[in-house]
Design a protein around this nucleic acid. Structure first.
Lengths: 186, 186
DNA sequence: CTATATTTCTAGCAATGCTAACCTAAATTG
DNA sequence: CAATTTAGGTTAGCATTGCTAGAAATATAG
């Protein structure tokens, strides 16, 4: 056997290397800067190698990066809530959510702006997404049919995007969070 | 003088022709389908003519289309509110807003997903946008510093996008609107 | 050492946004 | 009316993009 691990290991390692490089490049200069040539350069190989690991090309790479993002966001919101309840829980979750989107704009973009192809709708993504959704719902308290959770998520999603394009008054974020917490908590 | 109108008129007419064609193509097949070649074909000229009318290229064309969208959305929300007050006003505005985004997805995309370049930040767009913002605020009733309006807008924006990518339960939209109206109206 | 299988690269395609340089026909001028 | 300028348009092409077929090199047997 080769000294640097099994074949499967090497493949998995390079897959991760590609994903790391893609994410780093995206966060540094946006997804348009993540071209197949630059990405291949970053990992020390040529373009076709990328397609060997991700037949779906750039889209599949973005989708896989997004998948990690879903898990991270869900974990972050769960942790933010901790044992809190009521408006304090809602505010804590909102704060962390908006921070996440603001801190990893390209990751967040991959998570939600990427067109979803039915053929590629991975169960993994759906699972992670549902976990995040449930974390938001938990912060709200009782929400039988999930309607308020949907409203809460909508507000957070819209706010994060509008903040990003400069349509929200930046210094008013605490006010917005407080308002959201006061009005949506059960 | 020429029989077909003054020079300025012809220029204005073709400008509009370009905008109409771009918008139609975008609504029919998305903005990625609006290529400079196809757009030039649609108006019966060649590519450089586009750049004669819109030096900023595709971006400027999208931005100009978006400008009309801002005006239309603001008018639609104002009309939807009519003389209503309280939750009924909020619900009516929300309904119209979400309908607008769902009916003109590409137009809405141009309005809000297009990166805003500071150099190009047109006063026109800002004015129309502010008008729309105020229309939302009016539906809410009193909102001294506009915080609730920002939350309302965020919720509508996020909801429209999440609905579009299939992340909201479609049949629950009335519930979401009712919840939004009940919790945000003053 | 040879034959096979795997991995990687070279080279190229079609499409994109955009632009320089040329052409032509109309307007302007003497 | 003839010469010249000018505006409007086209041709042709550049650099970049995502992606891929086919050649070359490398490793793995037998």
């Amino acid at each position: 056997m080769a000294g640097a691990g099994s074949r499967a290991q090497r493949v998995a390692e390079r897959r991760q290397q590609i994903l790391d490089a893609a994410r780093a490049m995206a966060e540094a200069a946006g997804w348009t800067a993540v071209t197949s040539r630059r990405l291949a350069d970053a990992i020390g190989y040529t373009q076709p190698v990328l397609y060997g690991h991700f037949p779906g090309g750039k889209t599949e790479i973005m989708r896989t990066v997004a998948l990690a993002g879903f898990a991270e966001l869900a974990a972050a919101t769960r942790e933010a809530m901790g044992g809190k309840t009521g408006p304090r829980a809602v505010a804590a979750v909102a704060d962390v959510y908006l921070d996440f989107a603001a801190t990893h704009p390209s990751l967040y973009e991959a998570m939600f702006q990427l067109p979803i192809d039915a053929r590629f709708a991975q169960d993994d993504a759906e699972t992670e997404l549902r976990a995040g959704f449930n974390a938001l719902g938990a912060a709200l308290g009782t929400d039988d049919d999930g309607t308020v959770t949907e409203v809460f998520w909508s507000a957070l999603h819209g706010m994060s995007l509008l903040e990003r394009v400069g349509r929200m008054r930046h210094e008013h974020r605490p006010n917005r969070i407080a308002e959201l917490a006061a009005r949506l908590a059960n």
